[in-house]
């Protein structure tokens, strides 16, 4: 198996890694709090895709057992999909809470730039 086969056969995992890095980089490098939340979302989404990829079974079909199903039918693994439904719910709640905090921060500071917020805090301290 050549290198290009390895890359192509696991292309979904490569997408996961690229998305994960984009998300992490956004969280670290951006000073705007809203952009940080967007980065966090991209980061989490990459994990969702990873779990869905884990559930893939070659030649597998939808895991619904119909009456008297033949035993030679191959099903995709539904468990990772169920797990990630839970994790998506957790992700949505986290985002909601983050956005609520952002609204409060905006009200209290009048800005969402991390640098400006730190500066405002320092000015308040030195007074």
């Amino acid at each position: 198996m050549t290198m290009s086969d390895v890359v192509l056969e696991h292309y979904n995992y490569w997408v996961v890694i690229v998305l994960m890095m984009i998300g992490m980089y956004t969280v670290i490098s951006r000073g705007h709090l809203l952009k940080k939340v967007i980065g966090l979302n991209i980061f989490q989404t990459s994990v969702f895709i990873m779990y869905i990829s884990i559930g893939y079974v070659e030649g597998g079909t939808v895991p619904i057992v119909e009456g008297g199903a033949a035993s030679d039918v191959v099903y995709a693994n539904p468990l990772p999909h169920v797990l990630i439904l839970t994790a998506i719910v957790v992700g949505v709640s986290t985002t909601a809470l983050a956005l609520a905090l952002i609204i409060r921060i905006r009200e209290a500071y009048g800005t969402l730039e991390e640098y400006d917020i730190q500066k405002l805090d320092q000015d308040a301290e030195s007074e």
């Binding site: 969280v27 905090l101 921060i105």
Partner: peptide, 13 residues
């Protein structure tokens, strides 16, 4: 608020 937000980002990671 900023402390909570900072913890939220790091905790979620």
């Amino acid at each position: 608020l900023t402390a909570a937000f900072q913890y939220l980002v790091l905790g979620t990671i």
